[in-house]
Amino acid sequence: MSHMNKTLELIAHQINATDQMMVASIEDYRFNLVEFNHAVHIKLAYCYLVKNGPKTSILNMQNTLKGFLHANGVDRNKFHVTLTHAWLKAVWHFMQNCPAMKSSDEFIQNNPALLNKDLLLSHYSHELLFSDQARKKYVDPDLNRLPE
């Protein structure tokens, strides 16, 4: 598939009303903290990427996650810069390599590898990924390059 076709395919990824409600409830801190699991992180990343592309999405994701943590009384140090960046890159990579989806649920159903929380450990050593350095600022992988 040519680069042009991939770009057209990417533009066709969509979110639905359920996705919009989920994003809104996270952004205004109504979403239940107990239910804010890995799958919800992936869905949120997908929604931001559909709406804004990768550059703006990283800022949206960082701001939303930091605000959500703060609003729920969670220590802001729980926010992890490298995990946030690397998962967004992973979601973007999968979006570029699958047919256009109509929702975040459909995207996850068709890309179940993204539900594997250890996926990034094929790119990062455990020591680096969970280091204080990686928590505070983005670090490149030490095992295998992430797809761009």
Rank of each mutant, 00 (worst) to 15 (best):
P141Q: 13
E127W: 11
T84W: 00
E127V: 15
L128I: 14
S125W: 08
R76M: 08
K136E: 13
V81I: 02
D132F: 04
V81C: 05
D118C: 01
F130N: 11
Y138Q: 03
H126I: 08
A90V: 03
D142Y: 10
K136S: 12
A134P: 03
H123Y: 06
A134T: 05
M101C: 14
N144V: 11
S122N: 04
R135E: 07
A100L: 11
A90T: 08
K136Q: 14
K89H: 05
I108A: 01
N144Q: 10
H123V: 00
L146A: 05
D132H: 09
D142A: 03
A100V: 13
L143A: 01
A100M: 12
L143V: 04
Q109N: 12
I108Q: 03
K117T: 15
L121C: 07
R135A: 10
P99R: 04
L119F: 11
W92S: 11
K117I: 15
P141Y: 07
N110E: 13
L119K: 02
F79I: 00
A86M: 07
L115N: 15
H80A: 00
V81G: 00
S125I: 10
S122M: 01
W92D: 14
A100E: 12
S104H: 01
L83N: 00
L128W: 11
H93F: 07
Y138P: 08
F94R: 12
H80F: 01
A90S: 12
N116Y: 14
F94H: 13
L121T: 01
R76D: 03
D118K: 01
A86V: 05
T84R: 02
S103A: 09
S131T: 07
A86K: 03
R76T: 06
N77L: 01
F130K: 11
D140S: 14
A86N: 06
K78R: 10
P112N: 14
S125T: 15
W87C: 00
A90M: 13
S125P: 14
N116R: 12
M95Q: 05
N97S: 14
V81L: 02
N77D: 06
R135F: 02
L120V: 06
K78L: 09
L143C: 02
A90I: 02
F94G: 03
K102V: 12
L115D: 15
D132M: 06
M101Y: 10
D132R: 11
M101A: 15
L129T: 01
S131V: 07
S125K: 09
A134C: 09
H123Q: 04
Y138V: 13
E106M: 13
V139I: 05
K89C: 07
K102E: 09
A90C: 08
T84C: 06
R145Y: 00
P147M: 03
L88H: 00
R135S: 06
V81Q: 11
F79L: 01
N77M: 02
W87Q: 00
Y124K: 05
S122W: 02
N116V: 14
W87M: 01
K78G: 06
E127M: 14
K137C: 11
V139E: 04
A90N: 03
E127D: 15
N116C: 15
D132V: 05
Q96S: 06
H123L: 01
L128K: 12
K136D: 13
A113C: 09
E127R: 15
